[in-house]
Design a protein around this nucleic acid. Sequence first.
DNA 1: ACCTGAACACCGTTCAAGT
DNA 2: ACCTGAACACCGTTCAAGT
Lengths: 206, 206
Amino acid sequence: MSRNYAGLSRERIIIEALHIIAGRGLGGLSMRRLGDALEVEAMAIYHHFPLGKEQLFNAIAAYVTSPAPTGAAFDDEDEEASDSTEEETERVEEELDTRPWDVRLTMWAEAYRERLLAYSGALSLLAHRAPHTPNSAATHALMHRAFTEAGLRGDDVVRASDALHSYCLGSVVHQVRHSADEDAPDEEESTTRFTFGLRALLRGLV
Amino acid sequence: MSRNYAGLSRERIIIEALHIIAGRGLGGLSMRRLGDALEVEAMAIYHHFPLGKEQLFNAIAAYVTSPAPTGAAFDDEDEEASDSTEEETERVEEELDTRPWDVRLTMWAEAYRERLLAYSGALSLLAHRAPHTPNSAATHALMHRAFTEAGLRGDDVVRASDALHSYCLGSVVHQVRHSADEDAPDEEESTTRFTFGLRALLRGLV
DNA sequence: ACCTGAACACCGTTCAAGT
DNA sequence: ACCTGAACACCGTTCAAGT
């Protein structure tokens, strides 16, 4: 066929890439296979990601670590974050969240974990990438407020935030890493373990 | 040249692979490049890793997560762990370690972290691999003793072990992930943060 | 602007062959 | 047992061209 008005977009490409990753693993994602899935020649992808697969990986990493339905977080550095994406702010009105600090952090941690688990096939992309997204700034602010409210001061605030972030990420990596073990815990027990450690960490942190 | 008595071995291959990974990243490791570095045709590697690159990756993951100078931990599943590798047991005499449980866990955590940082280029290999090594059993026993000594009982012992493992792994991933940030903390501060979170976790766990 | 199609250098792996 | 060398299918990316 001569011409293909595929209506390609960065978001479509990323989502299709995540399908392939979920099905065949990260190693199973090739530009040609991705093109096939999008019903387009592989080279069409380069129009949306001119820097190639590495740029696509960055965008996937940003997408995976950003909360669900806001669509623009996965645009990467060379594109100014469009400041007009506050449709469906949903829980950015969390500034007026009056729940205790530990409840807010626990909610964040559980949501972060769920998202990482949902895209566990892309986990290894996160080992060397920490893309700047609108969401990462919001998370930073959320943690700063919560730990300050908990009584921490000075450098301890960022240290506690780092520890919480590390624990959540590590817990998911640990779970995925051992998911093929013959004595791997079921989903419920995995969640129990996550919560157990999370509570311990928050208790010890303040 | 007709014949090459290269004296190839699994360990030499793994170490050379880790050099390449350190220098050019995981994506820069190809069988052909690895062969060049070993001064051998790429296909010679298949004699030592008949299942190919995937098997090599597993062996690297085992090597990276096993303590330093014992040489046989990276043999993978299809090779029975040779039971004659107790030369230089060094700290396996830890059974008669009389230091407090938290000191022993802290020492383990710091050593584990150091090793992961030393091979940080291979970190993403650990996201989907948890190879069985002699060392993983030893670690499990060490943690079980320590947390039992700390007063934990039943399922909480393994939950605490998981939490500690998760935190250490996550802390390294978090550090490496952000090492390219313009405001990344220096090495000393990174260690301070690790210790801060580790102490908090151990305090909260018991 | 958006996509195609041929081309190039490189890759993992198989296989028959050499010693 | 250990390594070579040619071959095959596949890959990422460039580039000129089409609309």
